[in-house]
């Protein structure tokens, strides 16, 4: 599909240029520099932005119109960039319940779901319930915001830069929750330029450049290939940079390690120690 908008001095700029993707359950990372169209892609998938051209199907039905669109709306959950900016309620409990009750859940069920979702992110509803969301720390706010979307148990979960600006503990809590959501059968799309975050959770990675899809493959093939990443103007995962450097220095590093743990295992294997 394609979508364009009017630039600052007239003329149309393509935000998405003939993008064609087929997505199933699991975690799919969308990488690209700022301005590559990642956020636009997510908003289109969420049904918030209609494309200029092209179509979209969800669960086999046309997702741009009528019934199919309604089903998409009910099944999608989107975490925008810096989601804590959307807070407006006076207590964390109300903030969490907001989306749930708007979708027709009753108060008790909402509370239970909220509690589950918060614990998936390492937080405790009982401790936080009566506090104002504005009085929480940055990392807590982000986790609450993500939990409020997870609590909807969406079949299509969209996250836009979920780890941006987070302290290490909040970051790993978020990534754990994303991984769990992917395993539970939902289709999870994570837009990020943080290769390390995607390396930790994504099964598949798609790269966008100026609105076009330029790479599409398994996370290991792409994120583990440091030269390829650099070619497309992206910073490779730390572990694969290390692997490339070590290989250049003569050390055997088999496979395509994406995380520090995998790198350690690969080095050990290479030296016959594993």
């Amino acid at each position: 599909m394609s979508l364009s908008y009017e630039g600052a001095s007239g003329g149309r700029i393509a935000a998405l240029d003939d993008v064609s993707l087929s997505l199933g359950p699991g975690v799919i990372g969308v990488m690209g520099q700022t301005g590559s169209g990642k956020t636009t892609l997510l908003e289109v998938m969420a049904g918030a932005l209609p494309p200029d051209a092209g179509g979209m199907t969800f669960d086999g039905a046309d997702a741009l119109r009528g019934d199919g669109a309604r089903r998409l709306r009910a099944a999608v959950g989107m975490v925008s960039q810096i989601p804590e900016r959307q807070f407006f309620e006076s207590t964390v409990e109300r903030e969490m319940a907001f989306g749930l009750i708007a979708r027709g859940m009753d108060a008790d069920a909402a509370r239970m779901r909220a509690s589950e979702a918060l614990s998936e992110l390492g937080l405790n509803l009982d401790e936080l319930a009566m506090r104002s969301p504005f009085s929480l720390s940055g990392g807590q706010q982000r986790r609450v915001a993500i939990a409020s979307v997870l609590a909807l148990r969406p079949k299509l979960l969209l996250l836009d830069e979920p780890t941006a600006g987070l302290d290490p503990r909040s970051r790993s809590a978020c990534l754990d929750a994303v991984r769990m959501a992917g395993r539970s059968g939902a289709t999870v799309i994570v837009a990020s330029h943080d290769a390390n975050a995607l390396a930790a959770v994504a099964d598949r990675v798609v790269v966008l450049e100026r609105g076009c899809v330029t790479l599409d493959g398994s996370a290991r093939e792409l994120l583990g290939n440091a030269p390829l990443m650099r070619e497309h103007g992206l910073e490779p995962a730390c572990a694969s940079r290390a692997a490339t450097a070590l290989r250049r220095a003569g050390l055997a590093v088999p496979g395509a390690p994406l995380t520090a743990e995998e790198l350690a295992t690969a080095i050990a294997e290479g030296r016959g120690l594993a």
């Binding site: 918030a48 709306r73 999608v76 989107m78 925008s80 900016r85 959307q86 989306g99 708007a102 979307v149």
Partner: peptide
Amino acid sequence: ESRQLMRAQELRCG
């Protein structure tokens, strides 16, 4: 930012 927020809140709750 206000327009972005309006879109995001609409997604959250209709």
